[in-house]
Amino acid sequence: MGGQTMARREAIRLLGIASVAATFPGFSRWTFAGSGTALDASASEAVTAPYRPLFFSGAHFELIDRVSEMIIPADETPGARQAGVAEFIDFMVANRVPISGAGHIDAPGDSATSMGSELQRQWLEGLTWMDAHCQAEFGHAFSGCSEIQQNALLSALAYKAQFNRATAAGREFFQLLRDYTVAGYYTSRIGMESLGFPGLRMSWPKPPGCPHLDDPEHLRLRAS
């Protein structure tokens, strides 16, 4: 109200407001890496400096970094590693931020606080299970396994057709890993650009709408 004159509102409409960046560990890397915006010298340094995990051990952090890149690899667009997903996961788990419960509350007891308290235990147990399973199956912790062995494990966790009794205990953790990897990737600028999220643009004269008006059921699209 105070100070919100028409001129100001017009200015906002035409220019958009510059994003306000919060500051916290790992932020510079996952926000700006590969965004195409010019980085100043200090930001570049932050990108190259080794990341010190807030919550996970170095070994667990490496594991998360490797698995997240396996879930969303670099192809024609950058992957999870370049989007800083492992740092994101470390930050979120250190701060007990639930992903699945946010925005969907079923009962008065479902506060973010109560959902977050189990989170760290789930992660540590899951990572420990992965290493123990690899040790038993392949004779090495996950990081020491070959790419083929790592792939075999994830496949047995991810694809119904490859489910087996030995990996049943890890399936729920794999879903957690995938939830956080997807969240970290697709809430980064890299992930949004990879997906083609149209809302990265902040001002449109009008929604362009459907470009196939002569084909109301869009049947030909399916054939193409």
Binding site: S19, M92, V97, A112, A183, T187, R189
Partner: peptide, 13 residues
Amino acid sequence: QAYDLKYRGFGDP
């Protein structure tokens, strides 16, 4: 955007 928010839109628990 989500990446401008400290908890990426998932909120401060």
